[in-house]
Every structure is written in C-alpha cells, then in structure tokens.
Simulated assay, not measured.
Amino acid sequence: MKQLERCVLKACTALVLLVVGTTAIAAGSNDVSSLNLRRGATEISGQVYDLHMLMFSICVGIAVVVFGVMFVSMYLHRKSRGAKPANFHENVKVEIAWTVIPFLILIFMAVPAAKTLIAMEDTTEADLTVLVTGSQWKWHYKYMDREVEYYSLLATQREQINNRYNKGENYLLEVDRPLVIPTGQKVRFLITSDDVIHSWWVPDFAVKKDANPGFINEAWTKVDEPGIYRGQCAELCGKDHGFMPVVVIAKEPADYEAWVSEQESIQRQAREEEQRLLAMSMSKEELMSEGERVYNAACAACHMPNGEGLPGVFPALKGSVLATQNDPTAHIEIVLNGKTGTAMQAFGKMLSLKEIAAVVTYERNAWGNNTGQLIQPKDVNAVATGQ
C-alpha cells in the first residue's frame, strides 16, 4: 500500500509539473512556434493568439482542479486508510453547482471569442481590395483599384524537389511573383477559385479562407511592419497541392506606390507590345527560342524536356496527333483553355499571346515533329476571340 501511495503522489506531482511547464512554454516566446500558435504580424492575429492562450489557460485550470480532486480523493479515501464509501444518491446543491459553473465558464469564454470573430469578419472601410483566385496549382492576384494582375507560381528549383540539390531555407514556400501590400492600410481579400476548392492561408495574418469555385469569400488584414510573410494552400486540391505556396511582401506605403506604379507601366507596355505583334510576324528562330524557354518553364515538368511525357500519366507531344496535324487550332485551344478532367491547365491568362504562339510553334517543330508551321500571336488571338 505504501508503494501505491508513492505512485499516486508521483502521478499528482508529474501532472502538476506537466501542466505548469506546458503553460509556461506556451505563454513564452514566439520563437517556440512548433509548440504553440504564433502571435503573427497583425492586431487580429494577436487577438487570436491571446484568445487561444485564454482558452488554453482555462482548460489547464479545469484539468488541474478536476484531476487534482480525483487524485487527492483517491489518496485520502483509499481502503487501506479505512475509508468507507458513502451511500447517497442525490445532492441538489452539487447538481446546481456543476450546471451553473460550466455555464458561467462558457459565457466567460464566449464573450471574447465573439468579439474576435466579429472583428475578423469585418471587411468594411478597406483601403484597397485584391481579388485572389486559386487554380491548379497557382494563385492569381488582381488589384481591383489598379491595373495590375498576375499569377504567382512556385519558384523552388525542380532539382530540390527531385532531391538533386539540398533543400533551401524556404523550400516549397517560394514564388516567382509574391503579393505586395502596403503597411498600415486595411487590405480586403476577395477569395475564389477557377476549378476546385483551395484555401488561402497566411498564418501571420490569421487569415485562412476557402477559395470555392462560383463563390467569393472575404477576409482582410492590416500589417504594421514591413516584411515577408509566407503561407500555402491549406485544402487538398490535387496532385500539386503541396506546390502552391503563398508569399506576401508588406512594403511601406511609398515603396508600395512605387512598386504598383511600375507594375502598371510594365503591364501597359506588355499590352501595347501584344497589339504591335498582332500586326507583324515573328521569325522561326525567334519563335523557337522563346518557345523552348516557355516550354521548359511551364510544360516540361509534365510532358518532359524530350516531349515524350510520362506513359499513362502525361501524354507525349513528340509525334502526337495534336502536335503534328495540319490544323493547329486544337493545339492552340488546349494550351489556351486546358482540358477538363485532366491535369492540363489553362495558360490563356498566364502566358501572353507571344508566349503561347512561341510554345505551340516549338511543340510542333521540336523532337522531330518538323511540321514547318509557324504560329503567330495573331493566330492565337483569333482562336482566343473566336474570330
């Protein structure tokens, strides 16, 4: 019996130390992010963190009281000490107590929780709005009050993914074009999808919203400090779900304004260049050089650099009917619009007319296909507009 007493005492001591230690770690530095939520970079994320710690502390307190009473009762009222079990059935006071006390605890928890949730959903009085569209497997950002829009794709080297190079510090959390927002301003996000359900998640903003096709969900953030904030798609959306990161750069308002003005100028020049290309023809050398670059960046991962694809998974382009038939319309259409029910995505919004013309020309003349056909931007534009 003495051994049992010692075991019970040790169990009680271990429970108290575990609860106290866990609480101390969780309430400590944000650097211990693997054990707890991070405070984040916004006022809302701080409120979420404080709410989490409040709920955690209440749960720990309840656990200490309940398990403490249980272990103390087991120790003080054990059979070896001659304790006799009580014989009773009802106790109105106890029943009232264990009903009222949990009710009051829930009310105490509900008030701050409701306040935080209401603040998280309040997207009114935003300084700027960004339309976030998920598609397999990339993000598209459109600044609703400026003439800027672009796709954001994974930038991690394929050699790292294939374990040929060592993993980088931000492995699978790098993009070619991050979302840029100003500090000190309320940014409203309109979140939707082109195909399946995605989820736009940035932990430091306490923002995680599903991107549902045909629906628009809203979220917002207000970042006070410049910096780089990373996230990813948090909804299983297909084979490349793990290759769909989110990177947001918060800049000072003056730097942001300079950046967005530069992007408007670049995209305006690109549209003017496309219009110029519609009235002229590109040489085969120019088309093949540009087409090879685009193919290696956007197509080679699936169809392979040699155009032979992966049998049973991704079709070959080398010697295929699509890439060698006389009429290139079907070839242009599938690059523009993708193919429903397959992993072939639409590149009509991601690539320019020049890039699509170049990559189709490359696919129809590389690896021995040698159709001799040159696809010009005007040809792509005719298919895209149905003319």
Rank of each mutant, 00 (worst) to 15 (best):
residue 4 L to N: 13
residue 346 A to L: 03
residue 225 E to Y: 02
residue 81 R to Q: 13
residue 350 M to K: 09
residue 30 N to H: 03
residue 111 V to P: 10
residue 141 Y to P: 08
residue 245 P to T: 10
residue 373 Q to V: 09
residue 288 M to K: 06
residue 383 V to L: 12
residue 228 I to V: 15
residue 94 V to S: 07
residue 378 K to W: 01
residue 28 G to F: 02
residue 77 H to G: 15
residue 186 K to E: 04
residue 94 V to H: 00
residue 73 S to I: 03
residue 123 T to Y: 00
residue 221 T to G: 15
residue 262 E to P: 10
residue 60 V to Y: 03
residue 301 A to C: 06
residue 106 L to F: 13
residue 139 W to R: 06
residue 111 V to E: 09
residue 264 E to M: 07
residue 49 Y to V: 10
residue 337 N to I: 07
residue 355 E to I: 00
residue 254 A to E: 15
residue 277 L to T: 06
residue 44 I to F: 14
residue 119 A to I: 08
residue 239 K to P: 04
residue 354 K to N: 13
residue 179 L to T: 10
residue 367 W to N: 11
residue 124 T to V: 04
residue 139 W to F: 05
residue 283 S to G: 13
residue 318 K to D: 11
residue 299 C to P: 07
residue 279 A to W: 00
residue 317 L to Q: 06
residue 386 G to R: 12
residue 182 P to V: 02
residue 191 I to S: 12
residue 309 G to Q: 04
residue 290 E to N: 08
residue 11 A to Q: 06
residue 56 F to V: 11
residue 313 V to R: 09
residue 41 A to T: 03
residue 214 G to D: 05
residue 203 P to V: 03
residue 126 A to V: 04
residue 62 I to Y: 12
residue 152 S to D: 10
residue 220 W to D: 10
residue 332 I to D: 09
residue 2 K to A: 11
residue 311 P to K: 09
residue 295 Y to H: 08
residue 199 S to Q: 13
residue 19 V to S: 01
residue 24 A to T: 04
residue 295 Y to L: 11
residue 255 D to C: 06
residue 78 R to E: 09
residue 8 V to P: 03
residue 118 I to M: 11
residue 84 K to Q: 14
residue 381 N to E: 06
residue 292 E to D: 06
residue 61 G to W: 02
residue 6 R to C: 07
residue 73 S to P: 06
residue 307 G to K: 06
residue 234 A to F: 02
residue 100 V to C: 11
residue 381 N to G: 01
residue 300 A to T: 01
residue 205 F to W: 09
residue 231 G to C: 04
residue 98 W to M: 02
residue 42 T to N: 11
residue 307 G to F: 05
residue 241 H to K: 12
residue 299 C to E: 05
residue 200 W to M: 12
residue 287 L to A: 14
residue 310 L to A: 10
residue 333 E to G: 11
residue 161 I to H: 00
residue 276 R to F: 05
residue 386 G to T: 11
